[in-house]
Design a protein around this nucleic acid. Structure first.
Lengths: 129, 129
DNA sequence: TTCCATGCAAACAATTTGCAGCAGT
DNA sequence: ACTGCTGCAAATTGTTTGCATGGAA
């Protein structure tokens, strides 16, 4: 798994962004640095970086998957108004506890909470300026 | 929103199946009854039935969405071995309580727990026969 | 006749993959 | 020279949509 320039760029782009970018966003940002970088390369490297534990893939209920530089266990909340994602304050472990009693060997879960963030609530409450 | 024969078939197929079918599964089953029913018709009617509150769409983290005849609030657990979905015993409300303190106006969440069901655990523990 | 829903096929979005060529060792 | 990764483009998968036709009120 050699470190290629494109992989560095892709990882750098995800880390540099305050947002949770999807593959297209990564591609766009990466092309600011390396204009000819290919879609396939972006997908392949994002997958490799996730496998390597350097990034985490967030599968979205609707729309493209996003990528998170924060690989520590945590869950997300999506603002349906501005589309931004934020970290949930309740921990993964605490959520997982709820599933302890299922007749399953549980390996994980995917969760996306949806709502409206404070910013968007304020903006809609005070329309115009 | 007229009741067409194809809508009845589609609804019937989802209700009759013990599984949580995806659109392709619905199409296949529906074609046993009406061979020329079209994909578009299946998607349009599944969407309409969900809008009408007669079915519920379950968005899957990977793979096609599935449809549930049980529209009462409940969450799901997916067996990664056999691909079947089961209802979680912990209630939606109890899960939602965990998100009460987020600085958001929460409108919902999508959750899929993943694991291995009892059947598949038994089968893997006693290989062959 | 009026109108919505259908069948069909093309369009779409997100992602994956086959392959020839290039970069680094 | 060998190997693996790239760029490019075509293929897949899941779903949506445009449009002409058809069936029911």
């Amino acid at each position: 798994m050699g470190n290629t320039r494109q992989r560095e760029i892709i990882y750098g782009v995800v880390c540099a962004s305050p947002e949770h970018l999807d593959a297209e966003g990564v591609l766009e940002a990466a092309r600011h640095i390396m204009p000819k970088i290919a879609v396939g390369t972006v997908y392949r490297n994002l997958a490799a970086l996730c496998d390597a534990g350097l990034l985490r893939k967030i599968t979205m209920p609707n729309g493209p998957d996003r990528y998170d530089k924060n690989v520590a266990p945590h869950e997300h909340i999506l603002c349906s108004s501005c589309g931004r994602m934020f970290d949930l304050s309740v921990g993964t472990d605490e959520i997982a506890k709820l599933f302890k009693d299922e007749p399953f060997k549980i390996t994980g879960f995917t969760l996306t909470v949806v709502g409206t963030c404070k910013n968007c609530l304020l903006r809609s409450r005070a329309p115009g300026a």
